[in-house]
């Protein structure tokens, strides 16, 4: 087999692949996100907003999870802003968190541990401590930001209610 054949085959493969890529991005409706995270059984986006508000307030300050470098990256009106190009957004208490920011927070939260998240949701949130998202603020796992949740407090109830599919918006707002 000549090296030349290989090269041709490679080139052909590349062509096919890039055609597929172009085709798929033109027809982008049902392609997984480019970072390839797939959560089979995701908790609800529609009822996430009160949970997002809690996480923004408790975890999302600019010196903590309001940083683009964090795996759990949280946007919010008083923290990191999701900037559109040329946009002058800045953290401020006089504006609201945008819907796009809540969506980014949702994607960040469900994408942290996709398989475990799916499992927790399938189990009806009977064991939310499977998630690092819960263990860290509860101080069960080492957390640079310290212990911020206490077992059974309104914050734990809020996040767990969302994972279980019935967000307790009132408790989330406490």
């Amino acid at each position: 087999m000549s090296g030349r054949f290989f090269t041709r085959a490679r080139a052909l493969g590349l062509f096919v692949a890039s055609t597929a890529l172009v085709a798929s991005s033109v027809n982008a409706c049902n392609v997984p996100a480019t970072d390839g995270r797939v959560v089979e059984t995701a908790p609800d986006r529609a009822t996430f907003a009160p949970v997002s508000a809690l996480l923004e307030r408790r975890c999302g300050s600019l010196d903590c999870h309001g940083q683009a470098s964090r795996n759990l990256r949280l946007y919010g009106n008083e923290g990191l802003r999701l900037a559109q190009e040329g946009d002058a957004s800045r953290p401020s208490s006089t504006v609201n968190t945008t819907d796009a920011e809540v969506t980014e927070n949702y994607l960040s939260v469900v994408g942290l541990e996709p398989e475990l998240m799916s499992q927790v949701v399938r189990e009806g949130a009977s064991n939310p401590l499977r998630l690092t998202l819960m263990r860290k603020p509860l101080g069960i796992e080492n957390h640079k930001g310290g212990t911020l949740f206490q077992a059974g407090d309104s914050q734990v109830v809020c996040v767990t209610s969302w994972l279980a599919g019935h967000t307790d918006a009132v408790t989330c707002g406490q």
Partner: peptide, 25 residues
Amino acid sequence: MTSHVGRDGSCADCHTDPAGPTSAG
């Protein structure tokens, strides 16, 4: 300041110029 400081004692870590998506100015 309506929001709180999470763990950082230097005001300027969040308050740098120019104000923008990652800073309050």
